[in-house]
Design a protein around this nucleic acid. Structure first.
Lengths: 149, 149
DNA sequence: ACTGATCTTTACGTTCACGTCAATTTCACA
DNA sequence: TGTGAAATTGACGTGAACGTAAAGATCAGT
């Protein structure tokens, strides 16, 4: 029932990157160290880690931030994962539970703010381009009925 | 009536960058060489060039592409500028005029495609984040009425 | 137990996008 | 006409994000 663990080469192929990049991300702390591995032994990954890598690459692509900024952004996600784990243990004090949740909410809000800002800027650019396109097409249409004036 | 020409330091300040960057962009052909200047003499710019620089920086920021890719993207814009200039001369053959216009349209479409794609990806991410946010807030609200179950 | 493919660490190399001297020159202004 | 601030080219330096080569270790399959 436990999905076959993958090696770094497989993960790299599936994510569309290279082993070197994965090791680098691990080195700078952008990805967590591969779980419990005596140094010298091969890294083993589950689909869980593969998807994490994909998310990292996606955010890097979409937000175009430095790996350092990305790290702090993802530390939020990291924290949320921890929160989810803690919350699954039912025996957390309500007090503490509320703390964890609203902390998590703060992290999400920070990410959302960044993303919303970017999205807004982009759609503005998109609109401008669409406008320009309309103008050019209008000029072209006017050429089809030159005797109109 | 001719707006006072600015020097590279002024342009840099107004655009929020440095003289070095402007020279670099000019060097790699991302910005056109400052108009008619005997080498050794100071570069002089009009607000026209300032805005061009700003647009370059904006696109770089929003699309996060390499300066090389940006150069090809802007060569389209360059071409459109040329088209506009040619079109202002009223004496272009209709045949040629149509050619120029549809060529211009093609360039715009290429840019639009890229921008639309990015915008779509971003808004998808935005929606996902919003969803997550909703879920966390729901959990928080449920804590306010614990006796509900 | 062997073997070839893959992985390990270490370390130096590379590209991009500028930063930073340095020596000289140009420019606006008194 | 001098003078200080800003600009010029040229060259080397730098941080980020990996690439690449080397020498050895580990793993899956026979």
């Amino acid at each position: 029932m436990t999905a076959a663990p993958m090696r770094i080469g497989d993960v790299a192929r599936l994510a569309g990157t290279t082993p070197r990049t994965i090791r680098y991300y691990e080195e700078i702390g952008l990805l967590p160290d591969a779980p419990a591995r005596p140094s010298g032994q091969h890294r083993l990954y589950s689909t869980k880690e593969l998807e994490r890598l994909r998310e990292v690459m996606r955010l890097k692509h979409l937000l175009g931030v430095s790996l350092e900024e990305l790290k702090t952004l993802l530390s939020a996600e990291e924290a949320r994962a921890t929160v989810r784990a803690r919350l699954r243990e039912e025996d957390v004090h309500p007090e503490r539970r509320r703390e964890l949740l609203s902390e998590s909410l703060g992290h999400i809000d920070r990410q959302l703010e960044l993303v919303e800002h970017r999205a807004a800027e982009l759609s503005k650019l998109q609109e401008e381009l669409t406008q320009t396109r309309r103008r050019v097409r209008k000029l072209l249409r006017e050429m089809d009925v030159p005797a109109q004036v």
